[in-house]
């Protein structure tokens, strides 16, 4: 599964960033292979950052997103596009992916910010 996480830096040791729309980078992880790539969040300083950030992830064809905080507009875009939205983003990229693997992250059904 291709899953996106909002993160602070463009490297595999990076800590996550709990802000969805205004995080500097997204890590895109392939859970089967463990491969991780990064995309710059060009929406970070925009008006309507959440909506634009969601569009960036749609272009990356991710199937799921792990978020800390996500607002109503970004949530609606991801939800309507059929992505699975997990809450509970925490610590480093690896810690968050491990929690996902262990089934410890719950799916968000409403925005939380």
């Amino acid at each position: 599964m291709k899953v996106a996480l909002s993160v602070q830096n463009e490297n595999k040791q990076s800590m996550v960033d709990e802000r969805f729309g205004r995080c500097p980078y997204f890590a895109i992880a392939e859970t089967e292979t463990g491969e991780i790539t990064f995309v710059t969040n060009e929406a970070a300083n925009d008006n309507g950052a959440g909506v634009k950030a969601a569009r960036i992830l749609l272009k990356q064809k991710v199937e799921a997103v792990i978020v800390g905080n996500i607002g109503p507009k970004a949530f609606e875009v991801l939800n309507r596009a059929g992505l699975t939205i997990y809450g509970g983003l925490t610590g480093s990229i690896q810690e968050s992916l491990e929690l996902l693997k262990q089934g410890k992250l719950s799916q968000l059904t409403t925005p939380n910010n």
């Binding site: 929406a43 925009d46 008006n47 309507g48 950052a49 909506v51 634009k52 969601a54 569009r55 749609l58 507009k73 609606e76 875009v77 309507r80 596009a81």
Partner: peptide, 23 residues
């Protein structure tokens, strides 16, 4: 339409165009 919107008010999905009218 979404590409040209400077205010991120539009999102085009596979079979739906989302509009955030307040934006």
């Amino acid at each position: 339409c979404a590409e040209v919107c400077a205010f991120n008010a539009l999102v085009v999905l596979d079979d739906e165009v989302l509009l955030f009218p307040e934006m």
